[in-house]
Design a protein around this nucleic acid. Structure first.
Lengths: 158, 158
DNA sequence: TCCTATTGGTTGTAAATGTAACTAACAAGA
DNA sequence: TCTTGTTAGTTACATTTACAACCAATAGGA
């Protein structure tokens, strides 16, 4: 027979007493879980409808919202690494959502601009994004929404 | 000629008029950026001091905070996919931070338990986590902290 | 008992990411 | 001109993750 354990009953889960620090109130963990939850349903939309990745959607959104700009400019705004942006731009170009054009005054730079198809996708997705945002925020009061957004902006460093 | 706008048209770069929706107030984006910022400095700690991944730290933290449990139980709490947990457990076992033991009543299940070294790492890291949390929260008022945590918990589905 | 379904956990493979090395264009000074 | 350094962007490779298939143990009937 296997050796008997010191207690008869298998121990229930009981928190250690050494610390009252709970993972579920640890801010980075909370932020991460909230971000994952909030992002999932929207991710389904741009993935299913346009086969896009998050990086690609972000680039599309930036160009759609703020107009033509270089990859560098997108990087400054989004803090995505330049390799991520490079790959996202290539993918979007391959699917004819944007075009590149060398700048005459500095040929290292490329002006990225959405095509008509890109603008259409942006408009469709941004509508969904707005709906999704409204839906998420609907569970909070106006005052809570205000505090939440302000705190998040500060944490994000905006 | 293009149709005239109601205001005198500024020739500067101007956001498209189709939508006033700004990426920087889109909740999933904000959450993601905030999570990334907030997580980075703490990540450096457990990466540099223990060579751990985020998944490994989470498993360590769960076992340290709530005591021995199965991989399944960790999955229910963290919502990490079972493959991530499986690999994190293997890595922690290889570094002697935890031990596994088959449960007698159901041999599919494994009781995971921290070793002394594992507990030591947990205690060290949880102290750092608490400090980090306090530091992040210090920029907000008590009322803001309260709203922030409450909203995030709800968004995370806790 | 046998059959089938379910469950806890692992493994294989493809996709995505991070890091560093790289190319080409510019810039500034000797 | 010829350096040397910097910058925008790409490519290569290693690490990490996602997804599906898988294995072994259990459960529930017939």
């Amino acid at each position: 027979m296997p050796p008997r354990m010191s207690r008869a009953a298998p121990a229930e889960i009981e928190p250690q007493e050494e610390t009252d620090f709970d993972l579920q109130s640890f801010l980075p963990y909370l932020l991460n879980q909230a971000a994952e939850q909030a992002g999932t349903s929207f991710q389904r939309i741009y993935k299913a409808r346009y086969g896009m990745l998050r990086t690609e959607w972000r680039v599309l959104f930036h160009l759609g919202r703020y107009g033509p700009m270089t990859a560098k400019a997108i990087g400054l705004r989004t803090r995505m690494h330049k390799t991520k942006i490079s790959r996202a731009v290539s993918a979007l170009e391959a699917r004819r959502y944007l075009t590149r054009a060398e700048l005459e005054n500095d040929r290292r730079l490329e002006r990225l601009e959405l095509t008509a198809a890109g603008r259409k996708a942006y408009e469709d997705l941004s509508r969904h994004a707005r709906d999704h945002d409204a839906e998420l925020m609907a569970q909070f009061s106006a005052q809570e929404r205000d505090v939440l957004r302000r705190c998040l902006r500060q944490l994000a460093g905006f």
